[in-house]
Simulated scan of single mutants.
Amino acid sequence: MPLLGWPLVLTLSVVTLVTMVVTLVAWPRVRGGRPLRVAQRVGLLLVTQVATVLLVAAGLNNYGYFFGSWSDLVGQTSSGAPDPATISRALGVKPDSSGTDHGRTGVAPSQTQSAVAHATQSQWSTPAQWSTKGRVQAVTIAGAHSGMSEEALVYLPPQYFQPAYRHTRFPGVEVLTGYPGMTTALVERMHYPSILLSEMAHHRAKPMVLVMMRPTIAPPRDTECTDVPAGPLALTYFAEDVPRAVASDLRVNATGWGAMGDSTGGYCATKLAMTHSSVFTSAVSLSGYYHTLRDGTTGDLWGGSPQVRHLNDLEWLLQHQPAPPVSVYASIGTNELGHNGIVDTRRFASLVRPPMSVQVVTVAGGGHNFRDWSRVVPAGLDFLARRLA
Rank of each mutant, 00 (worst) to 15 (best):
R41L: 01
Y63P: 00
G147I: 13
G134E: 03
A57F: 02
G64P: 00
S114P: 07
R31T: 15
S69Y: 00
G80Q: 07
R41F: 04
A85G: 10
T86L: 02
S79P: 03
G92T: 01
L45V: 15
V30S: 13
A142N: 13
Q113R: 14
T120V: 06
Q121L: 00
T48Y: 03
V30R: 12
P28H: 09
T52V: 09
P127E: 14
P84H: 05
V93L: 09
V38F: 10
A39H: 15
T86E: 07
W27F: 04
D83W: 09
L36T: 14
T77I: 02
R31W: 11
Y65C: 02
V93I: 09
S78I: 04
G75D: 09
A51F: 05
R104T: 03
A90G: 11
P84V: 08
T120R: 06
Q40L: 05
G32S: 06
S88G: 10
A128S: 15
P95Q: 11
Q76C: 06
P95F: 04
S69V: 07
G106W: 10
R37G: 04
S131L: 05
M148Q: 11
Q129M: 01
I141S: 06
A138L: 03
P84A: 07
V25P: 13
V136E: 06
V116E: 09
Q129I: 03
G92L: 08
